[in-house]
């Protein structure tokens, strides 16, 4: 297959950057999207050019590092997958593919298609944990958890922190990510105790870091590779409002 690629190239965080066109021949349908870029990079290196910088690690949809905005959609045209799981068969021979980095004030571009997602770590540091004294791990079955709560917590826990929710949102809101974290912990007995404090701290940090305010368009939910539901955003809102009433 042959593709016309339009890729955002930017030397470093301070440079301007712009789109560069590449015509790539000899792509096979079995290639993943990232393998297609590997292949492009090989041809670039052979031609003495700088390869396109992009993030990747596990290449099986579990680490959340791949982060490409493809033809107007984070992680490309298919639902419920990360960029690394996208196959080139999804495109037609001769297609033009526009590849951009995540765009948000809170995710500045570092180089080409790589953005700085440290803001997510800062939100996690603000409250995305359970305060426990270290020591021997307690007996797992001593705290009963209902099947429903465990399932619902799991649905939130599968968030891989990729940031597609922010990239998709017209307001660059991080609500789905924060909701997944708050929801997961508040559903389990170990995390419940600190829910109010956690919800408040993480939302405050999210606001402070310049993410926008959610307007419930549900773009995040549709683009999330893990299908994190809006229902978690509702739970975050609920916990935050209850925290406000208690204070």
């Amino acid at each position: 297959m042959e593709f016309n690629l339009k890729i955002w190239r930017q030397k470093d965080a301070r440079s301007q950057g712009g789109f560069i066109d590449y015509n790539l021949k000899g792509v096979s349908g079995e290639m993943s999207f990232l393998e297609m870029i590997d292949y492009l990079n090989k041809t670039l290196i052979e031609g003495g050019e700088e390869p396109v910088a992009f993030e990747h690690d596990c290449r099986e949809g579990i680490c959340g590092s791949c982060s490409l905005y493809i033809n107007g959609r984070p992680h490309g045209p298919e639902d419920l997958i990360a960029t690394c799981e996208l196959r080139m068969t999804r495109f037609k021979d001769g297609d033009t593919i526009v590849i951009e980095p995540w765009r948000a004030k809170s995710f500045p571009v570092l180089k080409d298609l790589i953005v700085d997602r440290y803001a997510f770590d800062k939100i996690m540091q603000a409250g995305g944990f359970i305060s426990v004294n270290t020591g021997a791990a307690p007996e797992a079955n001593s705290i009963p958890v209902s099947k429903e709560a465990a399932d619902e917590a799991y649905d939130a826990a599968i968030c891989i922190g990729c940031g597609a929710c922010v990239a998709a949102c017209k307001n660059s809101s991080a609500m789905l990510f924060v909701a997944a974290k708050v929801s997961q912990l508040s559903l389990l007995p170990q995390g419940k105790a600190e829910t109010a404090k956690r919800a408040r701290a993480m939302v405050e940090k999210m606001d402070e870091l310049g993410f926008g305010s959610c307007t419930n368009t549900t773009a995040c939910e549709t683009e999330c590779p893990k299908g994190i539901s809006m229902a978690h955003i509702a739970r975050l809102n609920r916990e935050f409002l209850l925290a406000g009433l208690k204070s």
Partner: peptide, 26 residues
């Protein structure tokens, strides 16, 4: 305030299937 959260806009945005027109234009 939401207007300033994405200083650099995308070249292409495809939300026709993922969100409702009304939700984007409240």
């Amino acid at each position: 305030t939401n207007q300033s959260t994405r200083p650099h806009k995308y070249k292409i945005v495809d939300q026709s299937d993922t969100t409702s027109w009304a939700s984007r234009n409240m």
